[in-house]
């Protein structure tokens, strides 16, 4: 058997289209799951014990079930509750749902790293809870949460491959579509892998800068 990478000359438009879908899916999920994660983290330290218990249970369930199963659940389940969506939005909903809980854990431990006394001090100074959160707590949380945040972002990128299962035309799906007609899975999957590696590398460089910035912030404190 000989490898023939010239096949990539004919299939690259399909891979490129897949790459753009992968990038947009990753960005949309990142944009939706970040506020979702902040909400989960705040609810996990809500005053009501009932809310805390419910959020912890939901977090355990969403992080304990395979993401693929949640994608199927959104794909088959949403139309039944009256929400008939194309594959891409249903994949976004499923991925946002579980990534919010993963981010929730990251932000929760970030929030924990800020001494609880600061909330009380701000209250004593007459700051509103929202102002306390945005001006006092979050600026200290971000340096602690940034490195795990970006490593979870690479998990989103790699996780988008699962959307192939619900017919989203992202990179892995695009690769499969072209190798089943060209019979060249080796070369095409290798090329797809290289594209994922490049995208991941972009995020890892961001992480490197983020970690340096976080270290400076901690040193300045």
């Amino acid at each position: 058997m000989t490898l023939d990478f010239s096949i990539l000359g004919t299939v690259w438009p399909a891979l490129l289209r897949g790459t753009t879908v992968t990038i947009s899916l990753t960005s949309i999920v990142l944009l939706c799951a970040t506020p979702g994660g902040i909400a989960v983290a705040l609810l996990r330290s809500a005053p009501s014990p009932t809310v805390r218990t419910i959020v912890r249970a939901a977090s355990w369930i969403f992080r304990g079930v395979p993401p693929l199963l949640l994608l199927f659940l959104a794909f088959f389940g949403l139309p039944v509750v009256g929400l008939t969506l194309p594959p891409m939005p249903s994949a976004v909903i499923a991925m946002t749902a579980y990534m919010s809980f993963y981010f929730g854990e990251v932000f929760h431990s970030g929030l924990q790293s800020v001494a609880h006394g600061q909330w009380q001090a701000c209250k004593a100074l007459g700051l509103s809870p929202a102002r306390t959160l945005f001006r006092i707590i979050l600026p200290q949380t971000i340096p602690a949460a940034l490195p795990p945040y970006i490593s979870h972002a690479t998990e989103i990128l790699k996780g988008t491959a699962l959307a192939a299962a619900v017919a989203v035309p992202e990179l892995t799906n695009a690769a499969k579509q072209v190798f089943v007609v060209t019979y060249r899975p080796f070369e095409i999957l290798l090329a797809a892998g290289a594209i994922y590696a490049v995208l991941d590398a972009g995020l890892l460089i961001l992480q490197l800068y983020g970690e340096r910035w976080a270290a400076r912030r901690r040193a300045a404190r």
Binding site: K158, A161, A164, T172, R184, P185, F186, Y196, A197, A201
Partner: peptide, 23 residues
């Protein structure tokens, strides 16, 4: 580190679909 950069599904596809090409 190269393996950790890849989606698990892609690796699975590689093992399942690409190995027949190698015989």
């Amino acid at each position: 580190n190269a393996i950790r950069l890849l989606p698990a599904l892609l690796v699975l596809f590689f093992v399942f679909y690409a190995t027949p090409q190698l015989g």
